[in-house]
Design a protein around this nucleic acid. Structure first.
Lengths: 188, 188
DNA sequence: CCTGAAAGTCAACAGTTGTAGACTTTTATA
DNA sequence: TATAAAAGTCTACAACTGTTGACTTTCAGG
């Protein structure tokens, strides 16, 4: 009764780690099974297929109850999630996962749909004022762009930099993005 | 004498198209050969290996003489390159290529190194003033972020939008990035 | 026309992948 | 303890991958 849940979870954890880090297509089930110290065939038992395993990992990873809590500012929640040192510095990063898998020929559509349903749509619903959709898009551009430059492209100016400085730079971009079309839009 | 150059080029074109669109690992040599209407074994003849083919495509795609022309503003050149309707709207996009392949376990290092040597370093050399490196990093964050939101994540606010509007939004982000730490840094 | 190099074709290789089915071991219940 | 379900193991499969070497065709120079 309980034993199966444990191995299922071990498989799910190892899969999340690998899918987040290397992407769906670049990860084999045998790698995952070895990391989980579990037999490959159990993937078939507990998740049906590789795609089923990925879907489970995706849903677990995108379950962000903060976004629905009326007492929490959703934008602040996202920023915290995307800049949390515990996850931000690590390969186990939401941004990294999205970027890598959103273009995958096999799971790209699924990732984009899930991203939209789980994160974008709730955020959009709670954003008010003019140009809400555009400001949200620019906000996401700032977050993903900074994350890419720091983690994927690894530009020296953003890599050889303490986390606090990076956060300051990121906040600078975010503030601008959110100010788009508002009263306090910066002029140049 | 000439015939071989033609098939070599057909192979290179098809490879570039595929690598730029789906990424190195998600593209098979047989797919490329079929698109080029050429036999698979010729990859081995003309490029040695799959990695050799990718390297050739990478070098050809990153050869941007504009960046070394003293009469052209390098930042403007990059912006033009990244927002050119001919390439920007298409899957054949430099940003897309970088994002997809910079994380690939097999060619990631090569892509990042080439990107640095061919684009970042020349740009860095020609950028002046305080916080040059940081401004460059933020500039790249703006470009890649916007491109991702529009093409990879496909957020409605940036997809269901004419190119001119998108360019305006992108320019807004770029201006802010380049103004970082300067006299005309926007205040909020 | 003859000849040899250039160009292209074909089949096969060893390795890896996701998946399925038959099998054995473990565990809980009666 | 006996028994049946649950959990885990092992082997094999077909499909696909990059790469190689032997072969055939094409074609220009003597």
């Amino acid at each position: 009764m309980v034993k199966s849940q444990i191995t299922r979870q071990k498989l799910l954890d190892a899969a999340t780690q690998a899918f987040w880090d290397a992407g769906y297509s670049n990860t084999s089930l045998r790698q995952i099974a070895q990391a989980a110290e579990v037999d490959v065939a159990l993937v078939s038992r507990y998740f049906g297929s590789k795609l089923g395993l990925f879907t489970a990992a995706l849903e677990a990873g995108f379950a962000w109850p903060e976004l629905h809590d009326p007492d929490i500012d959703p934008v602040a929640a996202i920023i915290a999630k995307f800049t949390d040192p515990a996850t931000e510095d690590h390969k186990f990063s939401t941004t990294r996962m999205i970027i890598i898998n959103a273009n995958d020929p096999q799971v790209g559509d699924l990732v984009r749909t899930t991203l939209h349903n789980a994160i974008i749509a709730p955020l959009e619903r709670r954003m008010t004022g003019p140009h809400a959709a555009t400001r949200l898009a620019l906000f996401f551009a700032a977050i993903t762009g900074a994350s890419i430059v720091r983690h994927s492209l690894q530009l020296p100016a953003m890599v050889d930099t303490p986390v606090d400085t990076y956060k300051a730079q990121l906040n600078y971009l975010i503030k601008t993005a959110l100010a788009y079309g508002q009263d306090d839009t910066p002029t140049f």
